[in-house]
Amino acid sequence: MNAIHAIGAKTISRFAAAGRAALMLFGALIAMPRIKNVPLTIKQVYVVGVQSLLIILVSGLFIGMVMALQGYTILVDYGAEASLGPMVALSLLRELGPVVTALLFAGRAGSALTAEIGLMKATEQLSSLEMMAVDPLRRVVAPRFWAGLISMPMLALLFSAIGILGGHLVGVDWLGVDSGSYWSIMQSTVDFDKDVVNGIIKSLVFATVVTWIAIFKGYDCIPTSEGISKATTETVVFSSLAVLGLDFVLTALMFGIE
């Protein structure tokens, strides 16, 4: 009897949490048209976007370089090392750019968002805002949500671009693939609408999910130091899992069915 009771309680609390998350997202989305919030959003773009630039650019550069190195050793056996360009470009634009950016973003910016909002809740700053008739959804949640949504696709594009340049650095300048064929075969293979735009769409979906999870975990945490630490961990774990799972679904929808 106790086991059944536990299952029921767990289910109800999960659904209630999903409902609260949906209400919070709705509140944040409704809060978009406020002109007043634009400076707040720009401040948050700085915090979640600009401050993540370094880690994104460095990882993008090294992932591009490693892919060129690994791809070259296999492609050269078939005399197809000229196809290094499209290999690096397509894997970055379609998969690695959006996914790795989302994972890094969850670790770098998502955890920070959760901790920040969680601490605001623990120190009763959110309640004080409400006391002053300021809606914390408008003032705190919405700018952070929009900043995440704006920043992540931009970071993913930068990631792909610098990865392709990193691939050029290793493939062409070090291993001696012809620079002309690196670019020209890439150009004849990569399609702007199919590859670049789909990558951006993927990245937008990941941005929504990661930022949503991060903000909700902070907003809904148990307001103790232990609760904040648990919420931060859950943010990173849940958003990473959600990104990887969603990536498969999106890939199947975008590239799986011809």
Binding site: I42, K43, V45, Y46, G49, V50, L53, A89, L93, S151, M154, L157, L158, S160, A161, I162, I164, W183, M186, Q187, S188, V190, D191, F192, D195, V196
Partner: peptide, 26 residues
């Protein structure tokens, strides 16, 4: 803050141009 966000936006526009013109050959 606004200056750095501006730099971020310009960098992204640069990346889009690189991807569109050099990679996808639009």
């Amino acid at each position: 803050v606004e200056l750095m966000v501006g730099v971020f936006v310009l960098l992204t526009i640069g990346a889009v141009l690189l991807l569109a013109l050099k990679v996808a050959n639009q």
